[in-house]
Amino acid sequence: MPTSVSREAQAAIVRGMAATATRYPEPDDLDGWRALAAATDEAVRGMVGALPALGGEEERIDLGGLPVHAIAPAGLAPDDRRVYLDVHGGAWISGKGEVCRVRGALTARSVGARVWAVDYRMPPDHRYPAALDDCLTVYRALLEERRPEEIVVGGSSAGGNLAAALMLRARDEGLPLPAALVLSTPAVDLTESGDTWRTNLGLDPVLTGSLMPAIRLYADGHDLRDPYLSPLFGDFTNGFPPTVLASGTRDLLLSDTVRMHRALRAAGVEAELHVFEAAGHGMFLGNTPEDKDKAREIRRFAEREWARAAL
Results as ranks from 00 to 15, higher is better:
residue 183 L to T: 03
residue 183 L to Q: 05
residue 184 S to M: 14
residue 186 P to W: 14
residue 186 P to F: 12
residue 186 P to S: 13
residue 189 D to W: 13
residue 189 D to F: 08
residue 189 D to T: 06
residue 190 L to R: 07
residue 190 L to D: 03
residue 190 L to G: 07
residue 190 L to C: 06
residue 191 T to D: 12
residue 191 T to K: 01
residue 192 E to V: 01
residue 193 S to Y: 13
residue 196 T to H: 07
residue 197 W to C: 00
residue 197 W to F: 15
residue 199 T to D: 09
residue 200 N to R: 06
residue 202 G to W: 03
residue 203 L to Y: 13
residue 204 D to A: 11
residue 205 P to H: 15
residue 205 P to Q: 13
residue 205 P to R: 13
residue 208 T to V: 04
residue 209 G to F: 09
residue 209 G to M: 05
residue 210 S to D: 12
residue 210 S to L: 10
residue 211 L to C: 10
residue 211 L to E: 15
residue 213 P to V: 05
residue 213 P to I: 09
residue 213 P to Y: 05
residue 213 P to C: 12
residue 215 I to H: 03
residue 215 I to C: 03
residue 216 R to M: 00
residue 216 R to Q: 10
residue 218 Y to D: 01
residue 218 Y to A: 06
residue 219 A to V: 11
residue 220 D to W: 03
residue 221 G to A: 12
residue 221 G to K: 12
residue 221 G to W: 11
residue 221 G to D: 02
residue 222 H to Y: 11
residue 222 H to G: 00
residue 223 D to T: 01
residue 224 L to K: 02
residue 224 L to E: 06
residue 224 L to P: 05
residue 224 L to I: 02
residue 224 L to Q: 08
residue 224 L to T: 04
residue 226 D to W: 06
residue 227 P to T: 15
residue 227 P to G: 14
residue 228 Y to D: 04
residue 228 Y to H: 14
residue 229 L to Q: 01
residue 229 L to K: 05
residue 230 S to H: 03
residue 230 S to V: 06
residue 230 S to W: 07
residue 230 S to L: 07
residue 231 P to F: 14
residue 232 L to F: 13
residue 233 F to E: 05
residue 234 G to V: 06
residue 234 G to D: 09
residue 234 G to E: 10
residue 234 G to P: 00
residue 235 D to Q: 09
residue 235 D to A: 12
residue 236 F to P: 01
residue 236 F to T: 02
residue 237 T to H: 10
residue 238 N to S: 08
residue 239 G to E: 03
residue 239 G to W: 04
residue 239 G to L: 08
residue 240 F to A: 08
residue 240 F to G: 04
residue 241 P to Q: 09
residue 241 P to N: 11
residue 241 P to E: 09
residue 242 P to R: 06
residue 242 P to K: 00
residue 243 T to D: 10
residue 243 T to P: 03
residue 243 T to L: 05
residue 243 T to R: 06
residue 243 T to Y: 08
residue 244 V to D: 04
residue 245 L to N: 05
residue 245 L to F: 04
residue 245 L to A: 05
residue 246 A to H: 13
residue 247 S to Y: 02
residue 247 S to A: 14
residue 248 G to L: 08
residue 248 G to V: 07
residue 248 G to W: 05
residue 248 G to T: 01
residue 250 R to P: 07
residue 251 D to E: 09
residue 252 L to W: 00
residue 252 L to C: 00
residue 252 L to R: 08
residue 253 L to E: 07
residue 255 S to Q: 01
residue 255 S to T: 12
residue 255 S to K: 02
residue 257 T to K: 14
residue 257 T to G: 06
residue 258 V to Q: 07
residue 258 V to L: 10
residue 258 V to E: 08
residue 258 V to D: 01
residue 259 R to L: 14
residue 259 R to W: 08
